[in-house]
């Protein structure tokens, strides 16, 4: 019963958050200068053609009307169609206004769902890499506060968090890809193309995991149930691996929920540098082309993910530590 009321309350809040996000993005896009109709038909097109295009896209209506229409479509699961992308893929923004080769415009939902697996693959590999480094180091650091593992964790965390991701991407491309020819860098033609972007993303993640883990492990180790573990005849290894790490997982899982926005920001930059065909690259191109329906669709999609992941995170945290209440 408790879980049910929790879910209902959080879902209601989630709907509110998503509405706010739509409102913010929708208004922002239309208030900030830059006319998509003009961008699509090209700078040379006569004003009448621009007006016609604006009418076709529905941009000539007052903003509140556009907003209401968008919400109405959204409720039925219709995210709309991209302003500039045809079904076949490549965008045709900025081409001549009388170009006859234009095809039907692509559905926003299809565009998102097509690129999402690529981004999930990238994020998954990056998180796995980050955990492989940060989990052992962070645990050791938490077990020996002030000693060398702790100091090493501090230094690695400080250096990694200070590394600009775009710069690291360029440098790694130069050394690992161009000079040593170990890994491919640009585009995507197979799984190995995920590795280099994932390394850059992992470097961005490691400091956050390290910081959370060292603090929470150190804290758990001071708790009575850990101090009393030897009395119960538990080995040191079992105490640390099962009891201490299990309890330290709560802040770690929470971190994922809070830092999701940051992770996505990193994904956008990394995909842009490596020309990796995921959601991040789609986003940056959509913004640069002022593809309103696509930007709105991605924002709604991310907000929904944000809400769902945060609910999931709280549920996981509750099942790990039943004392928690939300």
């Amino acid at each position: 019963m408790f879980v049910l009321s929790f879910l209902l309350r959080r879902l209601a809040q989630g709907v509110l958050i998503i509405l706010l996000v739509i409102f913010i993005i929708f208004t922002l896009l239309r208030v900030v200068p830059g006319d998509p109709a003009r961008l699509i038909v090209g700078g040379m097109a006569p004003d009448a053609v621009v007006a016609e295009k604006a009418q076709e896209l529905g941009l000539d209506r007052p903003i509140p009307v556009q907003f209401a229409a968008y919400l109405r479509d959204l409720v039925t699961g219709d995210f709309g169609r991209s302003f500039v992308r045809p079904k076949s893929g490549a965008s045709f923004g900025g081409s001549a206004f009388d170009d006859q080769t234009r095809q039907e415009r692509a559905s926003v939902l299809d565009l998102i769902l097509d690129t999402l697996p690529m981004t999930l693959q990238l994020a998954g590999v990056a998180i796995a890499m980050a955990l492989a480094v940060a989990l052992p180091l962070g645990t050791l650091g938490g077990l020996h506060p002030g000693r060398w593992p702790d100091k090493l964790a501090l230094v690695i965390g400080s250096v990694f968090v200070s590394t600009p991701n775009f710069w690291l991407g360029i440098i790694l491309t130069l050394f690992l890809s161009v000079k040593l020819k170990l890994l491919p860098a640009i585009g995507y033609r197979g799984f190995s193309y995920t590795l280099l972007p994932a390394i850059v993303l992992a470097v961005e993640l490691v400091p956050f995991i390290l910081r959370t883990l060292t603090v929470s492990v150190a804290q758990v180790m001071r708790e009575d149930f850990i101090r009393l573990a030897p009395v119960r005849g538990l080995s040191r290894a079992r105490t640390v691996l099962v009891h201490a790490l299990g309890n330290s997982a709560v802040p770690l899982v929470n971190l994922l929920g809070v830092q999701l926005g940051m992770l996505l920001g990193g994904v956008v930059i990394v995909e842009f540098i490596f020309d990796y065909p995921g959601l991040g690259l789609l986003t940056i191109n959509a913004v640069l082309q002022r593809d309103f329906p696509l930007i709105q669709g991605i924002a709604v999609f991310i907000a929904v993910m944000f809400v769902l992941i945060n609910i999931l995170v709280d549920l996981i945290a509750m099942s790990i530590d039943p004392r928690l209440e939300y």
């Binding site: 958050i17 706010l20 996000v21 913010i24 993005i25 922002l28 896009l29 900030v32 200068p33 830059g34 809070v258 999701l260 926005g261 940051m262 996505l264 920001g265 956008v268 930059i269 986003t283 940056i284 913004v287 640069l288 002022r290 930007i295 991605i298 924002a299 991310i302 907000a303 944000f306 809400v307």
Partner: peptide
Amino acid sequence: AQLSIPMIILAITILGV
């Protein structure tokens, strides 16, 4: 709401134009 819009999207939307 603000936290669920990645900063970089806001920044390129506004600063891009």
